[in-house]
Simulated assay, not measured.
Amino acid sequence: MEKTVKLNNGVEMPQIGMGVWKTNPDDTADLVRTAAANGYTLFDTAKQYGNESGVGQGLQEAIKESGKKRDDFFLTTKIFNGDQGDYDKLRAAFNQQLQDLQTDYVDLLLLHWPVFGKYNESWRALEGILKDGQARAIGVCNFDVDHLTDLIDHAQVMPAINQIEFNPFIHQPDTVAFCQGNKIQLEAWSPLGNGRALANSVINRIAKEKGKSPAQVILRWELQQGFVVIPKSSHPDRMRANRDLDGFSLTADEMEAIAELDEEKHSIWYDKYKWSGNPNGVDDYIAKPNEF
């Protein structure tokens, strides 16, 4: 049976899913269809990725091929930063996202980044989307303790998820502790450290001892901490391996050995962007076809 976590509003969410960040829009439908054929039901996309239409098409193909229903899949997308701050604008933009995804609801809707001066009004719009049944759960991405504290002070609905960069090289302990203390489920983006962690000697030693791949060891390390993980692969064998995480666990010493790899350096962070309130930042963008 698929392992799930229960969000703070009672919604059950698969603990292992497929991310599509940096997936070429032309290839996304095939990736989703192939992943679904290999057991994946959770798919994570965003307007900023420029491939929501591919996810929607792939999901429709998967439903047709498998005989499953839309309700058998768990679909996550995110609000684009340029759509934040105005209630009506955000809701209109999200309605277009639903059309691109070929669905009338998503299972999880996230604010992609904490846009300076706008995320509280954006959250009010997400609360409206939740109330109207266009999302089963709502949450945030990349919010630190200060952002979360401010959001909660203004919110009617507690975020169900905080999706953050988390892997053997970055742990964000203050944010993790805050979320765990407030029953906000943690989800790891870039759970394999953009692939860099796969070559680490400590992880490879543990993998050899366990008879597992480095990716399986890393994902097991994250699952044992209660995270939802969304690794990406276009290869069916690796797709299956990334879900095959039962039947082994890491010892306390092995968990600590991986924890000691922490460098606490973000690969991407919001301070680079103007919408963060940083006047020296750069503008946000939506990925264009064939950009990757």
Rank of each mutant, 00 (worst) to 15 (best):
I286E: 00
D27W: 12
Q99T: 15
G82D: 13
E222M: 09
D104S: 11
T34Y: 09
A241C: 03
V11E: 11
I203K: 03
I286Y: 03
L98W: 05
I161D: 07
P279I: 09
K78P: 03
G82H: 10
R136H: 13
G247W: 09
V229G: 00
D132C: 05
P279A: 07
S276V: 01
L109H: 05
G139W: 08
L186I: 07
M239E: 01
N204A: 04
D30V: 15
P173Y: 06
A137Y: 05
C141H: 04
D100L: 15
Q48H: 09
S249M: 04
K68M: 11
G39R: 00
Y40D: 01
K212S: 02
V217P: 05
T251M: 02
D26L: 12
D71R: 02
L198F: 02
Y273K: 07
A257H: 00
V32Y: 10
G58Q: 13
L219P: 00
D30W: 09
T77L: 02
F80I: 02
D104K: 12
Q134E: 11
F227G: 02
Q134P: 07
H147D: 15
S276R: 08
A160E: 12
K6V: 14
F227C: 05
T149H: 14
N200L: 03
A137I: 03
T4C: 14
H235Q: 11
P279H: 10
G133F: 14
F73Y: 14
Q97L: 00
R205G: 13
I129P: 04
W113G: 05
A93S: 13
N194F: 14
K47I: 07
T34E: 14
I63P: 10
V32A: 09
N167I: 04
W21E: 01
V176H: 08
T28W: 13
S201A: 12
I16E: 02
R220K: 13
E209W: 06
A35E: 10
K208Q: 15
K212Y: 01
K288A: 12
E2F: 03
K47P: 04
A137N: 05
G85Y: 10
P231I: 06
I258V: 08
V20Q: 10
L250R: 08
D174V: 10
V140A: 09
G56R: 11
K118W: 08
E12L: 08
N182A: 11
H112M: 04
I286H: 04
A137V: 04
F292I: 11
G82N: 12
L109C: 06
K265F: 13
K274H: 05
V145M: 12
V106R: 06
C179W: 09
D83H: 15
E12K: 11
D86P: 08
G17V: 03
G82T: 12
E121N: 14
A257K: 09
L59N: 06
A93E: 08
S190A: 13
R240I: 08
I206C: 06
R240W: 01
C141M: 04
D132K: 01
R238G: 03
L109Q: 03
L219H: 05
Q96E: 13
R91M: 14
P214V: 00
D262S: 14
A207H: 05
A199H: 12
A241T: 01
R91A: 08
V115L: 05
K274D: 04
K69C: 06
L245H: 10
K3M: 14
A29T: 14
H235P: 00
R70P: 07
Q163S: 07
P231M: 01
N81V: 13
N95W: 00
Y105T: 01
W269K: 13
V157I: 15
K183M: 12
